[in-house]
Amino acid sequence: MDDAHDPDEVLVSELREYFARVDPVPGPVTEAARAALGWRRLDAELAELLSDSAVDEESLAGVRGVSTPTRSISFGARELTIELEIHSDGARRTLLGLIAPPFVASIEIQTADGATEVARTESDELGRFRAALPSGQNIRLRLTAVDPESGPPVETSWITV
């Protein structure tokens, strides 16, 4: 049977028209996808997402609405790990971080929705830092060692907070 008369194909093409009409990719979503290229790493080393308690407890994903108040995330680059704890108190998010091995770094919190909401903080000699976070956004951290001999800046993977 050719496709034009196969009842399954007819129904699928009707659904295709329906979804294209009712639920097309929103313009701003495509715009954000296009703009993502502007966030490629130029000078920094990537600290990859190693674990995220929000995902590692994926087996619980079926249990809707269950969420722990503290989320733990870790990133790793070649010689560096960055541990984050995100504490939620209502809409307020507080970020506690730890760099290991420790060094004093200037830390930029970048949001993917334009450069408007960039927060800054600095880690202490023990590699600890703290910052208030915007919620409901994609963020990443960019760490620049205060001591220029300590190597290139490090950027973490993006996470949604």
Binding site: P26, L37, W39, R40, R41, G136, N138, S157, W158, T160
Partner: peptide, 23 residues
Amino acid sequence: RGYRLSSADAADATQTTWLRLVE
């Protein structure tokens, strides 16, 4: 859209996906 997220969350997940690809 298959995961019954709000439109705002679906937009966030989409953006994260593309940022992840750039990464």
